[in-house]
Structures are given as structure tokens and as C-alpha cells.
Design a protein around this nucleic acid. Sequence first.
DNA 1: ATATCGATTATCT
DNA 2: GATAATCGATATG
Length: 196
Amino acid sequence: MPRSFFSRDPRRVARELVGKLLIRQQGRKVLAGRIVEVEAYLGASDPAAHAASGITERNRVLFGPPGHAYVYFIYGNHFCLNVSCQPEDKAGCVLIRALEPLAGLAEMARARGLPATDGKVACEKLTSGPSRLSRAMGVTRARDNGKDMTTPRSGLWLADDGFRPRRIGRTPRIGIQKAAAEKLRYLIAGNEFVSG
DNA sequence: ATATCGATTATCT
DNA sequence: GATAATCGATATG
């Protein structure tokens, strides 16, 4: 996806990111999944956003150019992956919450510590949830924070394979305290890999 | 099927 | 010193 795609209102980016691909490549190994659930965070004006209280060491990627990975650590265990969007001063982003795994399922299961059986693994548990998908894709803050997600050269990027979701649903965001009523969670309606 | 709870630590106040 | 954009385990109907 080109930089211009991310240089827009996070709500717009979020809605259009649903159905796109998240791809990780390291050496010969390729992991890929279709994005089936995201949330928009609106930046300085959004009380629920990490950018709300201004720039810090943790969130500084949000105040940089659009299309870059913002990875944060939470609850003592978990990493979550966002992509920065909008012009820098707005500091918006989109949280990637769930994938439909497409390539590298065995590798993902291994990364998740799930029984890497042949054929059908516990698929729905693999990449449904922001920390689960980060774990499955090997995303960490140390490795990936700040990466440019508009180019394969970063090894972690977003792509359009032409797929268009039949219907996109919208609900309130999950797990937040402030601005909890805003419907800023976007998902493929009826998709079995959506979390929650 | 839904509800509740503990884990565990970087980050911010 | 308190908190957190979660997960997995356990308990209960």
C-alpha cells in the first residue's frame, strides 16, 4: 500500500485496511494473513489514543510520517501492532486486531506455542486478537517499532491483493476506558477470525 | 456459553 | 506507585 493510503483520516484508513494483507518476510520464510478486524485511533483529539497526552518515548512513531509500525507492550506480556496514519501533527493510527491466516500457518502455530499438528491447527486461536497476531507474526517492539509498512524491504508490510469484503461492520472499540462509545472498530461481518 | 481473575512489566505521573 | 488498546485458565450454568 502506498504512503498516500495512510496519509488520511484514521477512520478512512481503518475501514479500507479491512480485507488487505499483512505480510512478514524474513529470509525464505513468509507469513501472511488477511486483516479482518481493526480499530481507528484518532490521535491528539482522541482520549483513548496513546497519542492523546502528547509525544513520549513510547509513542513517538505516531508523530512521525504515516505508514510506519507503532508497536507497544501492554499488560506485562503482550505486543500490539498499529500503523501510523494521517499527517504527523494529528498522530492517528490503526490497531490491527485480527487476521485470517493465509501463509505460514505451521510457523505461526509454533510461534504461538500451539500444537503444530499437520493440516488443521487451532486456526481461530492463531491470529484472532491483537497480541495473538503479533505473537504469531513474530512482531515485537524491539524488532519492528518504526518499520516502514509501505515497502516489502522492511520485511513487514501491507498489501492489496484485490479482495473486497462483502460487508464491513462497525462497533465500539474493545478494552478501552475512555471514549468507549465511539464506533471505531471495523470488521468483516460474519468472518470467523474476528476476535471477541 | 458466559463470567471472573491473575499474570507480568514497560511506561507514565 | 499505578496503570494498561490482552490472554488463557478456571469456574459456573
